[in-house]
Design a binder for these strands. Sequence first.
DNA 1: TTTTTTGTTGATTGACGAGTCAATAAACTT
DNA 2: AAGTTTATTGACTCGTCAATCAACAAAAAA
Lengths: 194, 194
Amino acid sequence: MPKLGMEPIRKAALVKATIVEIGRAGSLDVTVSQIAKRAGMSSALAHHYFGGKEALFIAAMRHVLSLYGAEVRGALLGAATPAARITAILQASFSATNFRREVVGAWLNFYVLAQTAPEAKRLLAIYQRRLRSNLLVGLRPLAGERARDLADGLGALIDGLYLREVLKDGAPDGAAAVACARAYLNAHLKECPL
Amino acid sequence: MPKLGMEPIRKAALVKATIVEIGRAGSLDVTVSQIAKRAGMSSALAHHYFGGKEALFIAAMRHVLSLYGAEVRGALLGAATPAARITAILQASFSATNFRREVVGAWLNFYVLAQTAPEAKRLLAIYQRRLRSNLLVGLRPLAGERARDLADGLGALIDGLYLREVLKDGAPDGAAAVACARAYLNAHLKECPL
DNA sequence: TTTTTTGTTGATTGACGAGTCAATAAACTT
DNA sequence: AAGTTTATTGACTCGTCAATCAACAAAAAA
């Protein structure tokens, strides 16, 4: 009993299921059937709507990225001062959301895919530019000329801290990562620490 | 015409071929046959010596890690002062070797595998501990109490910078990464910069 | 020399999976 | 009412691949 207008609903369900399955497997080694089953439909329908596995992965990444973007924007809403902006970005980056198994799996496999899939590389570049630009808005009033270099270093530090939190034994500790990133900035901004 | 004592030779060839194939594919999605072919033997022999694909991957990782370890040790040989030790570690970490396609592929997939394969996680932990310990030897004379926190932050920064260099468009620039890591330290060690 | 150990492969098995297609059905259009 | 578009699936094709095995070859041991 087909209802019309299913396309966006099915697509959303498939994207979600893709992320969950990648999280469960820890890799891109998941079958379209698994994904479709979790999304409550036949694998043929997944092919119908996405055309192939790769498109499904790309869509899933886009979704993870947009979730993260929304979280950052939300955190920035209540940030009045430059220092508060930086803090907001750090907290959004190390929020519990980003430590969920599915999100971790998506990110790590995202990196792998970015080596070979141009679209994945493009998405990653967009994420990095946006992060950099967000950091710069906060850093320029605090660091002036040095803001650019600081933002680059801080961006890399965020990625590195995330990687370590995510791969270490035991539960990840976002607060520790935030503290470490803060220390990085405070060392560079001894005049006016965060 | 079987010669005796082939086992170590075959194993080494397989490990090397595994790394090359992972680099070519950019993922762990490589077949035992591909690997065996590149190593100049039948896939059956690969199974004979390693028992399965996973063992092959683990052995490949171990090899990459041991190469890196050797490079660091080599660089540390000529390092007389604490500051020189840090510089040596940074340069070894961002050497051209580590930016070769195969090595990059190995590392990124290593991270993915570490999510689910305990042995991979163990190896990664060993690498991180060793890096930390190496950094500490250099940092303690320079930073005293703060050495621990500095080493943790610097370790994460190294990983993050590597990730960014490796995934950006264009050729990776190890020198820039070294400079950025140096700036991190100098900001914390304003009394006695590197 | 017979036996055992080591090295080696072609062929095979058994399973799985991506993508296609024909068919079915409900909903809109004319 | 007839035709078109959208939704949906089971069954199928075609390919791939990990792992196994029987068998063969040569060196070492007995």
